[in-house]
Each structure stands twice: as structure tokens, then as C-alpha cells.
Write a protein that binds this DNA or RNA. Structure first.
Lengths: 174, 174
DNA sequence: TCCTTCATGTAACCTGTTACATGATTCC
DNA sequence: GGAATCATGTAACAGGTTACATGAAGGA
């Protein structure tokens, strides 16, 4: 089995914050795990159905408006634990930002510099968002480790973009 | 059009290192752009065919063993340039490492620590690979900016894993 | 002759994206 | 009554993975 990530994210959210509907999970994704793994409702609903069919979750009674509540089973719990502990995580890299970095020398120096400055700003803006979240959470709570990682990531990229722009500018003038 | 990355990587390699066959490009991918964007031959061959059909590249005479040589056209060149200069790059995040970080609190402290130590080592090993490459290239040449980015990335992840392990260990004891 | 490398592809499958589609409930 | 939000889904398509399949050329 290859891409179990969506499954694991769902099992994780259900474990951490308790039983929920597909709708709830879609919201939880947006507000918590989204900066680590993105998924929309059109992916979540069918995945929950499959997971129920495979016994990883159970579906409760239908509530108002057809609401279905999912709960993790023993088997789901075990699977998540095993995945976390066991799985070697080196899937092939596919990073559009890095690809653009790779191709950067194909641009004129002024073009590259302008691009990098723009990107540095964009990274800084996203960074500000995550840092605000960090403030709110006071550096504790469920998503903290991932949030820390995300912040470090954006800081690194902002710095890389800025310093690379400086380097190119310097080389073009000097 | 959404995922133009493979296309752009191919146009970029053809621009930077000259006309090549699908086979050559597969090799070039492995040895240069692989740490930024991965693709195998089964993706590259059909993509080149599509690109030829759309006039982004031309196919030369067949060489020995059915070898086909591709060359970038004006149109391909323009497309690549526009993509680099214009495109806003914020595709949704989908980072398995970050997801695992998010789910980390579901493990027992000792399990998390063991996992993070293992990961820190793995990052360090990959880092050593890229740093060796950097030494070879003496910090210059076509892929340099991306290589720099890759190195910063791995350093950051290694540090994050190590420091997070320390933090958890400290909290569990103290 | 045999092995390796060069060289091309296809097919089935899984994951993710975008757009379409529907309807109940609650609040103003 | 009308708008927002709750709540579920499907379908067509694009992108990526794995495995299968074939054969020519070159070197030991």
C-alpha cells in the first residue's frame, strides 16, 4: 500500500478529537492539519466510506440532514499506530518551489531577483499566519510539533529566497 | 492548466543541457533535478510525445535503437519563460513528514523519541549526500540554487527532529 | 554467446482536482 | 421568504505508480 496518508490523517483526527462526521472532518482539516496535508470533502467522503467497508471505522446512526458519525475501531487504531511507528518515509520529492529554484538560471538576473523577492514576501506572509497561530496556541496542544516544523520551513524558505536574491544581485553588479 | 511541472522540468533540462532523448532525460532527472522533482521514464516518454504534438518540442530523425532526439521550439521556450516569471506557486501542501509530525502526540513518548531519532539520522544521511554534491560542484553550476535549498531543507528537518526528540524526552522525565 | 546498457513504450491502477448536484435546517 | 450553513455525494479528468513488454547494440 502506498498513499495511506489521507487515511492516517482521518484516523488521527478521529482519535485526537473524537468521533465526527465527514463534514466535521473537512472542517478540522482546514483548521488544523491543512498546513501539513490538504484534502477536500470530495476526497474525504469516499475515503470514509471505504474505511468503513474495511472495518477501520464504524458509522453511527444517521443524524439530522443525513449526518453520519464515524468512530475509530480497534483495527483502525492499530493500523494508525503501526503506520506511525513502522513506516519509512522517503517518498520521491515533488516540490514545485525547488523546481523553480532549479530552473532559475534560465532567467535574466533582474527577472530572478524580482521573482525571488516576490517569493520571499509570500513566504513571509504565510509565516506570519503560522506564527500568529503559534501565539494563539501558546506553543502547546495537539498540532504543535507540526506547526513548529511548518514555521521552520517557511523561515528557511524566506531566508533562502532573500539571500539568493542578494547573491544574484551582487554577482550581476560585481 | 494545473500541473505543468513535469513539462517545465523537461523544457528546462532541454534548454540547459541541449537536445536529448527520453532516455537521456530520464538519466538527467536522476542525476540532477531528482531532489527537486522526481519523474520516471514511464511518465517522461508519454509527456514528450504530448509536447511534440503540441509544438513545444520537435523530434529529430530516429537514431540507432529507435532513439529520438527532442529539441525545444520557440513556443516551448516562451512557455517555460512565462511559467517561471508569472506563475504563483501555492499549491496545497501535502507533506507526509509534516503529517507524521502532526500525529506524533498519538504515540507514547518513548516511541516518538525513537522515531524522531531515526528520522534525524535519515535526514542527516541524505544531507551528507547533498553536501558531497555541493563540494563536487564547488557551489556553482546549473543546479546550485536548488541544491542550496535542498541542503537547507534537510538541515532544518534534521534539527527539528533532534530538538523535538530532546523536548519530548525532557518533558517525559522532567 | 551472454550480459549489460541503451531505448522505447503501454496498461491497470490509485490519488487528487474541479465541477456538478442535491437537499435539510437554521437564522434573520 | 430568503440566505447562510450544514451535510452528503458523484463524475470526468489529470497526474503519478507499478508492472509488464519488447528489442537493438555493444562489450566480455
Amino acid at each position: 500500500m502506498r498513499g495511506m496518508s489521507l487515511r492516517m490523517a482521518l484516523l488521527g483526527l478521529l482519535t485526537a478529537s473524537g468521533p465526527a462526521s465527514g463534514y466535521d472532518l473537512t472542517k478540522r482539516f482546514e483548521s488544523s492539519v491543512n498546513h501539513a496535508w490538504h484534502a477536500g470533502h470530495s476526497q474525504i467522503y469516499p475515503e470514509l466510506a471505504k474505511m468503513a467497508a474495511e472495518g477501520l471505522v464504524t458509522v453511527g446512526e444517521e443524524g439530522p440532514r443525513g449526518r453520519k458519525t464515524y468512530t475509530v475501531t480497534e483495527e483502525g487504531s492499530r493500523l494508525l499506530h503501526d503506520w506511525l511507528v513502522t513506516k519509512e518515509n522517503f517518498r520521491p520529492v515533488r516540490d514545485e518551489g525547488a523546481l523553480r529554484a532549479f530552473l532559475l538560471p534560465l532567467l535574466e538576473p533582474e527577472e530572478s531577483v524580482a521573482l525571488l523577492r516576490r517569493e520571499a514576501e509570500a513566504y513571509a506572509a504565510r509565516l506570519a499566519g503560522l506564527e500568529a497561530l503559534w501565539q494563539v496556541k501558546q506553543g502547546s496542544g495537539f498540532g504543535t510539533y507540526a506547526l513548529d516544523l511548518g514555521i521552520r520551513q517557511l523561515r528557511m524558505m524566506r531566508d533562502w529566497a532573500g539571500e539568493t536574491a542578494d547573491r544574484i544581485e551582487h554577482a550581476a553588479r560585481g
